[in-house]
Design a protein around this nucleic acid. Sequence first.
DNA 1: CATGAATGAGCCTTCATTCAT
DNA 2: TATGAATGAAGGCTCATTCAT
Lengths: 241, 241, 241, 241
Amino acid sequence: MSVAKTRKDREKAEREELIITHAGRLLVRDGYQNLNLDALAEAVEYSKGTLYLHFKTKEDLVLAVATRALRERADLFERATRFKGKSRERIRAIGFACCQFALLHRDYFSIEMTLKSVSFWEKASEEQRRQHGVQSGRVFHAVNSIVQEAVLSGDLPKDVKPQDVVLSLISITIGSHIAATQPELQMLCAVENPIVAVRRNQDLIIDGWGWKPLLKDWDYTATDRRIKAEIFPEASWLKSS
Amino acid sequence: MSVAKTRKDREKAEREELIITHAGRLLVRDGYQNLNLDALAEAVEYSKGTLYLHFKTKEDLVLAVATRALRERADLFERATRFKGKSRERIRAIGFACCQFALLHRDYFSIEMTLKSVSFWEKASEEQRRQHGVQSGRVFHAVNSIVQEAVLSGDLPKDVKPQDVVLSLISITIGSHIAATQPELQMLCAVENPIVAVRRNQDLIIDGWGWKPLLKDWDYTATDRRIKAEIFPEASWLKSS
Amino acid sequence: MSVAKTRKDREKAEREELIITHAGRLLVRDGYQNLNLDALAEAVEYSKGTLYLHFKTKEDLVLAVATRALRERADLFERATRFKGKSRERIRAIGFACCQFALLHRDYFSIEMTLKSVSFWEKASEEQRRQHGVQSGRVFHAVNSIVQEAVLSGDLPKDVKPQDVVLSLISITIGSHIAATQPELQMLCAVENPIVAVRRNQDLIIDGWGWKPLLKDWDYTATDRRIKAEIFPEASWLKSS
Amino acid sequence: MSVAKTRKDREKAEREELIITHAGRLLVRDGYQNLNLDALAEAVEYSKGTLYLHFKTKEDLVLAVATRALRERADLFERATRFKGKSRERIRAIGFACCQFALLHRDYFSIEMTLKSVSFWEKASEEQRRQHGVQSGRVFHAVNSIVQEAVLSGDLPKDVKPQDVVLSLISITIGSHIAATQPELQMLCAVENPIVAVRRNQDLIIDGWGWKPLLKDWDYTATDRRIKAEIFPEASWLKSS
DNA sequence: CATGAATGAGCCTTCATTCAT
DNA sequence: TATGAATGAAGGCTCATTCAT
């Protein structure tokens, strides 16, 4: 029976994955307000009632979509963390992870934005809120650990506060992603490749903090090649970043 | 009659302002999907029918809210543009304008985000779309003109593309604003004052581009005082930025 | 002042005509439920308030449109009544009047049909209801007088009840008009010219009653020419009936 | 499961019938524009949402009402078609079918008239439009087949066009029905029994075409008795037509 | 008299959620 | 456990009618 239970559990988890995947797809296509559970039920080929066996409310479901994406981001960040090298090389790996994530979840932000509404969180279940918080923490700590190491090792000035660095990195990444994917701005600023823009901006911030070795003092070509090979072997886009 | 017409027009414009103001408030509180015209009508103490005398659809109304905020931003930017001084001082004034705007429209971004949906723009009227475009352009050109001047004057390296600089400035501002106002990140990164965080990040980017005089080479205290006095005399928050 | 009053009255009547004319046009184009007083006010270039100075309710207005059409029909019928000739020739003139009316008010029926709703009459004013009744009576009596004369003169069998004949004539005319203008039936029954179909059906009914001289016993070509010339000189369509 | 499915389907069909029946009743009472789905939902004792599980739009529902009536008419006509006898006897049976239908759906015409609006058909679903077309065709072909047979057999003159005969029959039936049920005309023309009036008018038209044996040449009493007994045994009204 | 801004009741339609089977 | 029919509250929008100017 324990075996049967296990199989049941696995099936349940698989179905949950299926639901989340399709929900994410529809969310990106239609936005939160136009996501409708009838359409989702049809897409996953389960009944609407079954959706409610997995998720207490629509908000719960959407939060699960966001959390899964966030977990993948955390996974990518932690993989980047394990890169062997200077702190600046490792934060660079994090930057690559951001781009990899952005490509996998091109419209993750549009989902994340809907989470900002107060009423949203009120309707989501405690458990989903907790899980989302856990993944947020993993992302933060992945970056923070590298920054702290850089301060300790002297790659960053002793007097910078690690949290400030983390915040600036998060800020430039979020902002670049939003800005570089807005059609209006793509036109005005002649953005050819959003990924390139994001990475350039990250470098600007990192240089801004005086994180050694500065871009002008070091050739990161070899580093990039190693990151590509060792951390993101699956990422075809990194061919010629 | 011309007088009466003028008064009528003024009253109409005033009521439109009133509606937009309240709509903005509710929009920030409840989000786009939860903004309901019954509640708005009650808030402004006019009937629902009257709302529709001013705005063809709900989308039109929301776009008007966004456009008004954007216009204020453009106004602030253009005021900053008129600051007399080095290019770096003037881009600094733009940074101050961002902060001033952020304070006036703390949650403007959450509104702007709802505009991303394709179906949204389809339902908005041509006129409102046009007006929004015009204001977007003003904002861009205010920043762009300063950057171009910096390149011409040699304050920025000759080989940087002005649009890249503009994009990075917009990115860091958007991103910092979002990040620094997220409760979760405020906690993790110990953000005491979001405004300070935004401005620090802007400086990092500007230094990152090598925009002279660099922060370490120049004392901007006097500049800040002048910006405060000459450009934003009304902004109390600038007391001790 | 009496003169001024007269002018005012005339202006009022003229405006009323204008309103009814435009209302009829919109009614035919959009149907009763889609007739909207804003559009009508714009069309007549008077304010909505002015419309209400002339008509108590929307129903009143529509009834006025119907009544005016009915009055025109009655006028045409009474003109036909004055045709000099055999009773069968005169009822033939009525038939021509029907066609003339149908051409002038191609979609009068669609208006008349909306009058059938009980709730409609409840909302119409007493005065308008009365006027509509008066015109109905004129139409009936025009036809009835000819039928009675035919019975008296022996052109119709002595034992037919005039009212039955009148009813059958009204029936075939209404029915033919509806049937011959339905696209579906036009296709199935190969209706080339609705007017011709209506007149043929009228002849069938009249022959059916044995109204002398029967179609096969008399050549009505000359009659038709006279009706055209004497009664409907303005009707271009009668060229080659 | 197949059994359960069958039962479900049957229940669904029954509920659909229930909705259509009540909708027809309200439609006749209030007209299309005043039919409101809240009232209908209350009448059928199902929720408004349930109505929408059966019909995509209000227009769809109304069209379904019309189509069901039309189907019944087609059924009656096809039954009449199967009457054994002379062609004139069989077209007479069709006449009886008209009356039987008129009694069952006293106010069908008022519904059918609302279908004339162009905007109506735009909002109805393709499927409902198709079904309505199919039933229209059945009605036409039932009549047309008898007329053609009459021409071939020499009961109608060789030179008449069958479609003209069909059109005249449809016209007199529609028109008589409308005229004979208008209170105003009932009064003016002393209509005691609308059914009798309709049938008399039909005979006039049929005689008008010279369809043999003419009314004066044949006693249809026995035919009527047979039609009553063989085709409409359920129709109590035919007792003494 | 004429206006047209303001009203607000009313309606169609959607969709998250429930629950009997 | 899975289903999907049923629900009903909610919301955007219209438009006939009124009334202060």
